[in-house]
Simulated assay, not measured.
Amino acid sequence: MEIIDQLSQAHRELIDGERKSVVLRRHYDAEVEDVWQACTDAERLGRWFAPVSGDFRLGGTYQIEGNARGEIVRCEPPSVLKITWLYGEDPGFSEVEVQLTAKDGGTAFELRHTAEVPAEFWGQFGPGATGVGWDLALLGLALHLTGGEKVDEETFHQTEDGRGFITGSCRAWGEAHRAAGGDPDEVAAAVAACTAFYAPE
């Protein structure tokens, strides 16, 4: 698998309002039940995403190691999973919803992350702050579903493939930001800030 080619497999959209939604859509050449299990089974999540613990049922809670925690608020196998996504000591509203649909012999995958974002943070980083992280996650899922190895998060940005993927993702989220009406100068500054964060020299 050419890692950089995975960027063009996803469609990105920003829904800009009082709450911000980053949306990613792509197709996986895997059965919908397989993709569902990869997204909801703790052992498999640890192989492509991150270690996750908790009570994996409707109304249960989860904790991602070193990251978000929350509650499972909707679970309709193998089609819909919605969770609250709480990060830090005083998180505002934040939800992630994944929808899977059998299509063309594989799976149409949609992820929507909707959150209340502090204006200062949004002004600095824009949608790339969340979007690039989800691009990396969807890359991990693609590698997992095709038998590939998980990328090393500590060193990925130092590799040629990693830098190319991350900088391409930052630019792609800048394009989605502009398409949603973002000011070109602010968008350019946010792309630069995201690139410096995710792929420091």
Rank of each mutant, 00 (worst) to 15 (best):
E186M: 10
E18I: 11
L145D: 00
E116A: 14
L141I: 01
Y28M: 02
A129R: 09
F109A: 00
E95R: 09
R69L: 03
V23D: 05
A119F: 10
P127W: 09
E154H: 11
E154R: 13
G164Y: 07
Q9H: 12
P78N: 08
W36D: 03
T155C: 04
F156S: 02
G66N: 05
G126H: 05
G147R: 06
G54A: 11
A142F: 05
F56K: 07
E31N: 13
L136P: 00
L86H: 15
K82H: 10
Q37D: 13
C170P: 02
E110T: 15
D185C: 00
I166R: 03
C194W: 07
E33H: 13
D135H: 03
A188Y: 10
S79V: 07
A102E: 15
E95T: 15
D152Q: 09
V98R: 02
R19Y: 13
H11T: 12
E89L: 04
W36K: 05
W173E: 06
E97V: 13
E33C: 00
A172N: 06
F125Q: 02
H144Y: 15
I15H: 13
S79D: 13
D55P: 03
A30S: 10
A190N: 06
D135V: 05
V191L: 03
H27I: 05
K150V: 05
H177V: 03
G92D: 12
Y198A: 04
